[in-house]
Simulated scan of single mutants.
Amino acid sequence: MVDRVALADFLSRSRARLAPADVGLPSGSRRRTPGLRREEVALLAGLSVDYYARLEQGRGPQPSPQLLVALGRALRLGEDERDHLFHLAGHVPPRRHGVLAHVRPGLLLILDRLHDVPAQVVSDVGDVLAQNAMAAAVFGDAGGSGRRNLLLRWFTDPASRALFPPEDHEALARAHAAGLRAAHAARPGDRRVAGLLAELLATGEEFAGYWERHEVALRRSGVKRVCHPVVGELVLECEVLAAGGEDQLLLVHTAAVGSESASRLELLRVVGAGV
């Protein structure tokens, strides 16, 4: 059952604790009250301002777990605070692993500061747990449930695969399958890993063929080529950094200083994904 009064109070107080700089937003000069505005939280969480306002007013329907995850990230809640938010909304908090895995507030702050390069936090099974605006502009917005997993996008969405040169497809497909093999062995019995594997095997013979090779490999740093539909080819150096433990990785993509790819990234940063 939703505790609407306590939920409204917790959201309001959590919002008041944050300064715009804490979430990568400009401070502005006409703030009459401390903290973020409601419209800023709504923007960060991907909600309508009206819906978020009704939550703070103790009205509206019960928030879904996916919405609560988005609010927790927008408000930079720690794990205990995130779990409290779920309890107030009448839901069981998510497990520490899986698609709803918690991303630490400090890591989200790093994403906010990396405003000029694509960066995202990815789980060991390819779930995009958080991404900055540049990552969305280069690789596509992973906010929708059907786009959150990189492996499912690769093996089911031709548009996602078209972002990469055809000559790179074989190596990328093998790397996706090999990474899932490593996670499957490291976390036997994990429902998220098993569920994802079942979904991928049901997609057809292509993934099944790669899976049968029994290749194992973790995500590594290296060069990645992207065929962006607006700015053209991008040659990016992908750095893979441990984030929230071995099951979460921070992927940061940079272009060589002075290169054509650097100029194209800057153009994309200025004009955004909707050129």
Rank of each mutant, 00 (worst) to 15 (best):
P94S: 07
L152M: 15
F86R: 06
S259I: 09
A177H: 01
G232E: 11
C227D: 12
G245W: 02
L250A: 08
R76F: 03
P65D: 11
P229W: 02
A175E: 14
Y52L: 09
D112S: 15
A137Q: 09
L11C: 06
R269N: 08
A135V: 05
A208V: 10
A183R: 12
G274D: 15
F155P: 02
L251C: 14
H84W: 05
L111C: 05
E237Y: 11
A162V: 05
L152V: 14
L109I: 07
H228G: 02
R76M: 07
L197Y: 09
R219T: 12
E205I: 09
P63G: 03
L109K: 10
A136L: 09
G106I: 03
R4D: 02
P34Q: 07
M134D: 07
L36Q: 02
L180R: 10
P188Q: 08
P20K: 08
L85T: 02
P93L: 01
R59K: 10
P26Y: 06
H228A: 00
E205A: 15
L107S: 00
K224S: 02
W211G: 09
H176K: 13
D80N: 06
G146R: 14
R161N: 11
Q57V: 02
A217T: 11
L268N: 01
G222C: 05
R82N: 07
L265D: 04
A162E: 12
G258T: 03
A42M: 11
G126C: 13
L201Q: 15
E167N: 00
V121G: 09
V270Y: 00
L265W: 02
G272F: 12
A178M: 09
S145P: 15
V117Y: 10
V41N: 10
L267D: 03
R4T: 02
Q120P: 08
A45C: 14
E260Y: 05
A119M: 02
R225S: 06
E233W: 03
V103A: 00
L150D: 12
V122P: 09
A21C: 00
S263A: 13
G204A: 06
A208P: 05
R54L: 11
A42C: 13
A242L: 11
S263F: 04
E40S: 00
R192Y: 14
A255Q: 13
V125W: 08
V230R: 11
G244S: 06
P65F: 08
S27L: 03
F155M: 05
R17G: 01
S259C: 03
G35M: 04
D157L: 10
V103T: 13
R113V: 04
A135K: 07
S261H: 01
L55F: 12
H169P: 03
E246Y: 06
A273S: 14
